[in-house]
Design a protein around this nucleic acid. Structure first.
Length: 356
DNA sequence: TACTCCCGCCACTGA
DNA sequence: TCAGTGGCGGGAGTA
């Protein structure tokens, strides 16, 4: 699916006032969130600011920042205040999560992936790997501990740990929920956990850390880990190709299904050349190359701009002319405001680059 | 019909 | 007391 507004869509969007669930998905929200804050000049941001600029309720921003915080992209600084760390922190966070996951026993078994093929309520719970949610005696936990245990932040971290530490290529949400609910196979708890995992999976998919696919030979949806290497690969594709049409933009279906799972590469590389040095190289490369959708953040776009300009010098004028011609009017004032914000940022970006 | 996941209620926390 | 936070599940949209 693609919710990037093209000129052809403008008229349709103007006329179309009906509700569309997809336009409000957490994945789209995260994508917009990235475009808004993944910039050099952004250090801190507020919940209210994000909610207003993105035209969503605060509640949804909490969902997003909780998941982003779990992989180190943002960190909480105070009431309604977060710092933007950016993608430089993702490799480090993933490394830490993997180490934690191995310590906590995420890699002990195959995450019950076979249970998707044969799933029964009376299935032996011992066949699953250690569920971090329920490592402690529940009676010894305070209410606060219980709440933290069930937080989206922790759930997201544990979900990522499963990918980083298990030997399974594919993980279904059912499997993940079962592992995280080892001591409770109650169907209602399962449903709730799966709902949350859908939220997390949407965010991680939007960031292309994971990819939605199917279990082999079935239509059962499952998720495949792409990891930080996908950031680098994406950058390599971008710099090695001057053909813009080959770039995948957010929202389009992934066609490159041969992408190798890289979690083992990640750890082995750390061992080979030393984590610190590798981390710096990887983070630099990832930061230089990562691009989100059509509204590229300035940090990642400076090099891209040169490529585009060299090969398509006339294209910039075309785009600017197109932008000034098409000014969509939306029924929703929030959308209009958000679009105005993007337009302003886009214009400033071009002005600055032209000056340079 | 099963899957997906938005939406907002409401409990909890801390100032 | 109240604003901030976020777990939770109903139920609507989608495939």
């Amino acid at each position: 699916m693609s919710w990037i507004v093209s000129p052809q869509d403008v008229d349709a969007l103007t006329l179309q006032s009906s509700y569309s669930r997809k336009e409000k998905s957490l994945g789209v929200l995260v994508s917009n969130f990235m475009r808004l804050y993944n910039r050099d000049d952004v250090d801190l941001f507020g919940i209210d600011d994000a909610a207003a600029k993105l035209g969503v309720e605060r509640r949804r921003i909490y969902d997003v920042v909780n998941i982003l915080e779990s992989i180190g992209v943002v960190s909480r600084k105070g009431k309604s205040l977060y710092s933007w760390n950016g993608f430089l922190h993702i490799p480090r966070s993933l490394h830490q999560l993997k180490e934690e996951g191995l310590r906590e026993g995420f890699g002990l078994s195959s995450l019950c992936s076979n249970s998707d093929k044969v799933s029964h309520d009376d299935e032996s719970e011992d066949s699953c790997s250690l569920p971090p949610d329920n490592q402690h005696n529940s009676s010894s936990l305070s209410k606060m501990d219980h709440k933290k245990e069930r937080s989206l932040w922790l759930l997201s971290q544990n979900f990522v740990k499963m990918f980083l530490c298990s030997h399974d290529d594919l993980i279904t949400l059912d499997t993940a929920a079962k592992v995280l609910l080892r001591d409770s196979q109650d169907s209602m708890h399962m449903r709730t956990k799966v709902r949350r995992l859908y939220d997390i999976a949407n965010v991680l998919s939007s960031m292309e850390l994971i990819e939605k696919t199917n279990l082999p030979g079935t239509r059962k949806p499952a998720y495949k880990w792409l990891g930080s290497k996908s950031l680098t690969e994406k950058g390599a594709r971008l710099f090695n190709s001057t053909n813009e049409s080959k770039k995948r933009v957010f929202g389009t279906e992934i066609t490159n299904l041969s992408t190798k799972r890289n979690k083992t590469d990640c750890s082995s590389n750390y061992k080979k050349i030393g984590y610190k040095k590798h981390e710096e190289e990887e983070t630099k490369q990832a930061a230089k190359s990562y691009v989100f959708g059509p509204f590229s953040p300035t940090a990642a776009s400076k090099k891209n701009y040169n490529i585009v300009r060299t090969n398509n010098s006339g294209r910039l004028q075309d785009l600017e002319a197109l932008a000034s011609t098409h000014k969509p009017q939306y029924c929703n004032q929030d959308v209009t405001g958000l679009l105005g914000h993007y337009t302003e940022a886009w214009n400033k970006w071009f002005e600055e680059l032209y000056r340079k």
